[in-house]
């Protein structure tokens, strides 16, 4: 069962379209897998719609706009309406083609939310593989991270945040074990050492370089570069 969910504030920002694409996609994937958050998000969306477009909003419109500006708007509207209705085409029902990737002989179907993103090449280091999802968000790096059975990530912490969303397989760290759909948002207060017995595929969003906290790994820059 999924035990790790995005916080309500994140769900709200998601429903309002206020988050970056990387985080929006993560929450979309989680919501798609988690009936609980699906229901919450639907309720939040309804609430936001009412707040923005409902009765309260309407009276605000009447109070804030004078007659003149309304009439001005009316004529602008007519032009816009003419342009829109001149288009006789109706949009086809969108066809969703699942995108599959194969890694070390295992096939994975990517979630719809990231199916059309540009995916870089996988780079490998030991049992770790990483491919970038090219979202163009500067220092915020989004990747697919794969651990082969028995693989692990050395103990580390972050200056910014690290979001890990388990897509397939399992892993565990000091806090417990995780199943597909689990949504983990960690920041500088956390350190952890994820280990996967059977292998796993994760969607990760990392906002800043990682810091390895122990011994020789402090010097392991290649791994830091790979995971960030």
């Amino acid at each position: 069962m999924i035990r790790h969910h995005p916080k309500e504030t994140l769900l709200k920002a998601f429903a309002g379209g206020e988050l970056a694409a990387s985080l929006s996609a993560a929450i979309a994937i989680h919501v798609d897998m988690c009936p609980l958050c699906q229901e919450k998000t639907a309720a939040i969306t309804r609430e936001q719609a009412m707040k923005s477009f409902g009765r309260e909003a309407l009276s605000a419109d009447i109070n804030s706009s004078g007659v003149d500006s309304c009439q001005q708007a009316e004529t602008d509207y007519d032009d816009m309406i003419q342009v829109i209705v001149a288009d006789e085409q109706i949009a086809p029902v969108p066809l969703r083609i699942p995108k599959k990737i194969t890694l070390h002989g295992q096939e994975f179907t990517l979630p719809q939310a990231i199916a059309n993103l540009q995916l870089g090449k996988f780079r490998h280091l030991g049992k770790l593989s990483r491919a970038r999802l090219l979202l163009g968000e500067g220092p915020i790096h989004t990747s697919l991270l794969h651990l082969q059975p028995g693989g692990s990530v050395p103990e580390h912490t972050h200056k910014g945040y690290e979001l890990t969303l388990l897509l397939a397989g399992e892993f565990h760290d000091e806090q417990g074990s995780y199943v597909p759909g689990d949504f983990m948002m960690l920041d500088g207060r956390h350190t952890h050492t994820p280990v996967s017995e059977q292998g796993c595929l994760c969607y990760t969003v990392v906002s800043d370089a990682l810091h390895f906290t122990q011994g020789i790994n402090k010097l392991l820059n290649p791994i830091a570069a790979l995971i960030y």
Binding site: Q48, P94, N116, L117, E137
Partner: peptide, 27 residues
């Protein structure tokens, strides 16, 4: 409301990340 949310999201992405990938339909 959700259509407007999606349109705004794609437009903001165009402005901020300079990407015209219209991701909102997938998200």
């Amino acid at each position: 409301y959700t259509i407007m949310r999606n349109v705004s999201f794609d437009m903001l992405r165009k402005v901020q990340a300079n990407k015209e990938d219209n991701l909102s339909d997938d998200i």
